[in-house]
Design a protein around this nucleic acid. Sequence first.
DNA 1: ATTACTAGGTATCGAGTAC
DNA 2: TGTACTCGATACCTAGTAA
Lengths: 228, 228
Amino acid sequence: MPAGTATPRRKYEEILLLRYLAGLGADRSPAVLSSREVGVHLGVSQQAADRYLLALARDGFLERSLGGRKQSLTLKASGLDLLRREYHDLRRLFEGPARLRFTGSVVSGLGEGRYYLAQPGYTVQFAERLGYTPYPGTLNIQPGPPDLLRVSAVKDWKGLRIDGFSAAGRTFGGATCHAARLGGRPGHLITPDRTHHTDVVEFIAPEYLRERLSLKDGDPVDVELEES
Amino acid sequence: MPAGTATPRRKYEEILLLRYLAGLGADRSPAVLSSREVGVHLGVSQQAADRYLLALARDGFLERSLGGRKQSLTLKASGLDLLRREYHDLRRLFEGPARLRFTGSVVSGLGEGRYYLAQPGYTVQFAERLGYTPYPGTLNIQPGPPDLLRVSAVKDWKGLRIDGFSAAGRTFGGATCHAARLGGRPGHLITPDRTHHTDVVEFIAPEYLRERLSLKDGDPVDVELEES
DNA sequence: ATTACTAGGTATCGAGTAC
DNA sequence: TGTACTCGATACCTAGTAA
């Protein structure tokens, strides 16, 4: 299951346009460009450039405001994500699997992890794909502010899929796992598809790490992970 | 003058195909794939996949041998270069301008540098684009073997163009310059479009560096450069 | 000046099929 | 099995032009 071929693929010109906008810093402040200028840059007509802009805006990759003489173009998060995925794919080719090491502090979750991880629909998949049944509880780690951006890039890495399912009249979402070590102990970073928090990552392991490593809230921990 | 829009642009599917092959290590050993398998991976028909292979082979990006049952596909240097350029463009977006620092040893050239650098067709461009008229001679540096690969990546960096011209009944080729420091002294790495050697880089500077730094053949020197 | 529609020509696709 | 041609359908481009 190759990543990146599932979605109904964008046109190359559209990707080049997103790249161009990103290069102009349109993810931070709007780029003011006419469709003609875009066309010249891409080597296509004003009309074609306009169609690309229309399509990208329709699909939520950029935002346009046609207020004044020219339009203001702003790259949205999903547009930048698309480029980041492209970057990551190519980076892998030339630099090999990504590695990451960061320090974070232990924080308390809502205790939901215990309920979710105990679901048979999940545990059978864990046993099969991770090779163990995790202790029923996630250890939540808040990366230090300088690491947060790098940690968020992990979502683009290839990972082990845990599929969603339905049980007891409700649905349980899927997740992606990445092999990692926390304080030297092996386990996985787990990223639910529908994640609630953006500044915290969840770690699962075969053992009860809080006890094994004598961790309490606020304690610093080292996390290392390598792309599979 | 945006780099990457001059060439008559490849189709995205063709680039994805090159990426796929690179991912299979087809730059080192042939990948054995039918056009149907390629088509499945790209989400297009066998016929379309075949057309892409045909076009890429025609343009020298890959080599096919149709000997046995399936074809053997080998990625050629220009195919990998194309991907490397894509990678570099995206890397710049997310990581900022590239930097490089390497150590090499001083080697003797053929003395041609003196003749070329003295051509008025070049000197006016140097003065205008580099901000100085270089001492008429290049200092040749041979990077240490471990650095050679990284140094060769510099050709993908954005740089200052020096255009070719005709004079005295012959033609002088263009070149690309990258701002750099050699042993702490400012100057430029200069890469002729039609370069003769592959393991040596040439450095130009406002002053006679051999004398200024008391360099003789075989001496080690530090070179630092940052993308403009 | 813009953006963006319509019309008509071209390029590209997949199906069928020859080798 | 393969690769790769021809052919008719369609997707996409540019030009012209409306707003």
